[in-house]
């Protein structure tokens, strides 16, 4: 029984380590994306590109003045309805970066958010790996070192 548990923990740990392996990179491409900003949504709300790709965004606004601020890349661009804007950058950092409306556009303006995911999204893989390793480690610790205390489990209730 214990062996089954340890084997499962090992599998979890291996999955975590696999997540940490570097992924093979593909040749960089250029993405042309049109992002339309309207209360209170960017369409598309999620863009996925690979690390190293060039991203050319045509930004439009279809109801009121909006803006786009891209976390992590420190890009800011206002956009008026009817007059489109171009944003161009290289997705050199991996991870998920939110683009937020940067011009107050109404009540829910602070929550007008889109997501740029630069794969292979190493920070997310690392975070998942860290959680899996931590959980496996903590279960291992509990089974190995805390089980001897089990008979005195009632110590947890104090008078």
């Amino acid at each position: 029984m214990r062996m089954v548990l340890y084997a499962s923990l090992l599998v979890i740990a291996l999955v975590a380590l696999w997540l940490l392996l570097p992924t093979q990179s593909q040749a960089a491409t250029t993405h042309h994306v049109t992002i339309d900003a309207a209360q209170y949504e960017f369409s598309p709300g999620r863009i996925e590109v690979a690390q190293g790709d060039e991203v050319i965004i045509t930004l439009t606004a279809s109801d009121v003045v909006h803006g786009l601020y891209l976390d992590g890349y420190d890009i800011e661009q206002q956009v008026l309805p009817g007059v489109s804007q171009q944003i161009r950058f290289f997705a050199d950092q991996p991870g998920k970066f939110r683009y937020r409306c940067s011009v107050s556009c109404g009540a829910l303006h602070p929550f007008m958010i889109g997501e740029l995911v630069v794969s292979s999204n190493a920070p997310f893989r690392q975070a998942v790996a860290a959680v899996l390793l931590a959980v496996a480690g903590s279960i291992f610790y509990l089974s190995r070192f805390r089980s001897s205390q089990n008979e005195q489990g009632s110590e947890t209730t104090r008078a």
Binding site: I139, S143, Q149, N150, E151, G153, S154, T156, T157
Partner: peptide
Amino acid sequence: IHRVAAHHSPGRAL
């Protein structure tokens, strides 16, 4: 969870 479990079933907390 483990501590609560140890309280209710000391031998089989895991």
